[in-house]
Design a binder for these strands. Structure first.
Length: 376
DNA sequence: GCTGGACCTGG
DNA sequence: CAGGTCCAG
């Protein structure tokens, strides 16, 4: 196709420490589409968290990651900066492992066991607004349907991006204004969002209201979220995030970790909970020590009414346990265990994922056509 | 405050 | 059941 004229840039990345075929498909980001023939990933990216979207392509070999912008709306420098910040390439992954080996030798000293998982040790720094909505969609859901929903959202309310020269058109991820203008709860329900339809509409409305109230209407949703949250202590940031509909502790933590750069946050889901019980013997019972810890937390959280209302103290203790154990990048350590756990329980392995993704994409396109007609 | 259901949908 | 959240009692 266009690959002949694409001007690829490259950056030195050892695939042993960062393998995009894992990282882009493990369930952090949901909108990368894999092309098995060219071995490329493609998505529309809001490079500067502002208005313009670029079509970005990525591929990788043992030593390098390659990237290009197809339509090239923005300048090259912006693209270079985006790649470095999206994959957080300035973070020394080797050093993280050395740190974890010391702090948690039981699980990190046996490198031969861990080594295959190094490549998945990456928390992507994603667009805040898209991260918030994606993880609202993730509740009690599976990766393939979350993927489908994220694409549907762009098709229903985003703008088609011209000249991207793909078989199927690509769309921008819709902002809050587009969502409340174009979509309703019933439209989303008709398009398979289930009970999350309401959360999405309410969240978009709330962002619009908040921007209005703060006199920040000119900011994009992501810019606003950064303006509102960046630099706040975790507890305050979480309190703010929890105020959105459909956002509980788990979704809030995913948003803060992957969208807002709170790298020490370990989102406690069923997998992490299981790991805590099984591998670290965190008792689910109620020991005296635990009661004391919970009492302490309750006192600390009196300042945070929304947190008090939504938090599960048992699970929050697990979050704190792993934060204290793994340190400033505990969220990254969790990504390893997640890959290991999900990889073994749901049978997701390299080859089959790609094929499945392509199939899903095709279904998406078909349904998108019918759905768009239905909407109009 | 805490606990148990209900909740959309698809593999 | 799937990387939960909400609401009632």
């Amino acid at each position: 196709m266009t690959s002949g004229v694409d001007k690829w840039f490259k950056i030195a990345v050892n695939i042993k420490y960062l393998d995009i075929s894992t990282v882009l498909q493990i369930g952090q980001s949901f909108r990368w589409v894999y092309n098995g023939e060219t071995n490329e990933y493609i998505s529309s990216i809001n490079l500067d968290h502002d208005k313009t979207f670029d079509i970005v392509k990525l591929k990788q070999d043992d030593k390098f990651m390659y990237y290009t912008s197809v339509n090239n709306n923005n300048n090259k420098q912006l693209l270079h900066t985006w790649v470095r910040s999206y994959f957080l390439l300035d973070i020394d992954r080797k050093q993280l492992f050395e740190h974890w080996k010391i702090k948690d030798p039981k699980h990190f000293s046996n490198l031969s066991h861990i080594e295959p998982l190094c490549s998945s040790c990456c928390i992507l720094q994603q667009d805040p607004w898209e991260t918030l909505l994606s993880f609202i969609c993730s509740s009690n859901n599976n990766i393939s349907r979350i993927t489908k929903m994220c694409h549907t959202l762009t098709e229903l309310a985003g703008d088609e991006i011209p000249n991207c020269d793909q078989l199927s058109p690509l769309y921008t991820f819709p902002n809050s204004g587009q969502i409340i203008k174009v979509l309703t709860e019933s439209i989303l329900r008709e398009n398979g969002f289930g009970y999350r339809a309401k959360y999405i509409i309410e969240t978009a409305k709330k962002i619009v209201d908040l921007k209005l109230k703060d006199g920040m209407m000119e900011l994009s949703d992501s810019q606003y979220l950064k303006w509102k949250i960046s630099g706040s202590p975790y507890l305050e940031a979480r309190e703010f995030a929890l105020a959105f509909s459909g956002v509980g502790p788990k979704v809030a933590d995913c948003f803060l970790l992957m969208g807002m750069g709170y790298h020490d946050v370990v989102p406690v889901d069923v997998h992490v909970n299981r790991i805590a019980q099984r591998d670290y013997k965190i008792t689910s019972g109620s020991s005296n020590n635990k009661k004391t810890q919970i009492a302490k937390l309750k006192l600390e959280y009196t300042k945070y009414p929304t947190t008090r209302r939504k938090i599960n103290f048992d699970l929050d203790l697990i979050r704190l346990f792993f934060r204290d154990l793994w340190g400033a990048y505990s969220g990254w350590a969790q990504a390893i265990f997640f890959a290991k756990e999900v990889g073994s329980t749901s049978g997701i392995v390299d080859g089959s994922v790609s094929k499945r993704k392509l199939l899903i994409k095709t279904e998406d396109d078909n349904s998108a056509v019918t759905k768009r007609i239905k909407v109009k």
